[in-house]
């Protein structure tokens, strides 16, 4: 199985410009992220707001220019591509957005929205436009009769299906899913997840699944990257893997299970997520960590093997 996507030391710094009374500040949104995404796998990226998971998604698709690191897609160096070459490549790597309500131009009919990928890539739809629209809408489980509707006439779940149809129109091999169900009701969330599972099997897609919902990621993904303040702190190789990083364990204990017989014992968690501006040296979780020791505040831990998987912690459990 070859790697569809190889990410090495990817980083993004945002700098706020200083003024007369302010110092310029640097925010490390994504810091030194590396991973491989083999063809056909589903990798989940999980973390709380501000951990850099959405920025990571946009860096991989080069919707935001990385500050450092390399990106290889299908063996090709993405960062070496010109904007024109990048536009052509986009046909092979697509994204489904978090907010289906604003992901479709409000002035576009569903038909026009679904045909936009063909228009911008200069591809003629096979068997004509109407047949293509029908095929795509059928594929995502939408009634083709909705083709002449406007987005505001559709429910959230229906709009997200349109978003998926648009992303899949040009048959990409990689699909980045940025919290595709976060703004949907649970019953609809299950529909969309079911659809994504079915499409993966039918079309042989590779997914990068971004979410804040650990139980959803554990259900849906083969491998999980846990992010905290721009860094990957743990890579869980499979969904049953035992977590070793204190943050991952906190995250797991904070995620409730829908079973009143297995209530979580919630331990108090000290402090707050530190500001991503001007990070101190050392582990970002140190101030809140029950396992903290001297070295944690001095040295940033690197990802290293511990009990069979990668963990970035000086004192893994």
């Amino acid at each position: 199985m070859s790697n569809l996507l190889e990410v090495r030391n990817l980083a993004k710094k945002f700098t706020s410009s200083g003024g007369a009374f302010r110092k310029a500040r640097t925010m490390h949104a994504v810091n030194d992220v590396s991973f491989d995404l083999p063809e056909g796998r589903v990798i989940g990226v999980v973390g709380e707001s501000g951990c850099g998971k959405s920025t990571l998604a946009r860096l991989i698709l080069r919707l935001i220019e990385p500050s450092a690191g390399t990106l290889h897609f299908n063996g090709e160096d993405l960062r070496a591509k010109t904007p024109a070459q990048m536009r052509d490549l986009r046909a092979h790597m697509q994204m489904v957005f978090q907010d289906p309500y604003s992901a479709i131009d409000p002035r576009y009919t569903i038909e026009r929205a679904v045909l936009e990928p063909f228009l911008v890539q200069g591809v003629k739809p096979i068997d004509g436009a109407a047949a293509q629209v029908e095929a795509l809408l059928n594929m995502v489980g939408l009634n083709p009769g909705l083709a002449d509707r406007f987005p505001h006439q559709l429910s959230g779940g229906q709009k997200q299906r349109v978003g998926i149809a648009r992303a899949l129109a040009l048959r990409p091999s990689l699909l980045v899913l940025d919290e595709p169900t976060a703004s949907l009701d649970v019953s609809v969330q299950a529909q969309i997840i079911g659809l994504l599972e079915q499409l993966r099997d039918e079309l042989g897609l590779t997914y990068l699944f971004i979410s804040h919902d650990l139980s959803l990621v554990r259900y849906f993904c083969d491998e999980i990257l846990v992010m905290y303040l721009g860094r990957v702190v743990e890579v869980l190789p499979d969904t049953n893997g035992q977590a070793c990083h204190p943050y991952t364990i906190t995250l797991m204990n904070s995620t409730f299970v829908p079973d009143p017989k297995h209530r979580r014992v919630i331990r108090p968690l000290e402090g707050e997520v530190p500001s991503p501006f001007d990070l101190k040296p050392g582990c970002a979780f140190a101030d809140r960590c029950p396992q903290v020791s001297e070295i944690c505040r001095a040295e940033t831990p690197e990802l290293s093997k511990h009990s069979g998987h990668l963990v970035a912690c000086h004192n893994p459990i």
Binding site: L61, Q94, S102, L119, V120, L170
Partner: peptide, 17 residues
């Protein structure tokens, strides 16, 4: 800033489009 603009860029839309 709207998502649909990002979505269109992500589909490969040129500035003109």
């Amino acid at each position: 800033q709207e998502t649909f603009i990002e979505a269109s860029i992500n589909l490969g839309g040129k500035p003109r489009h």
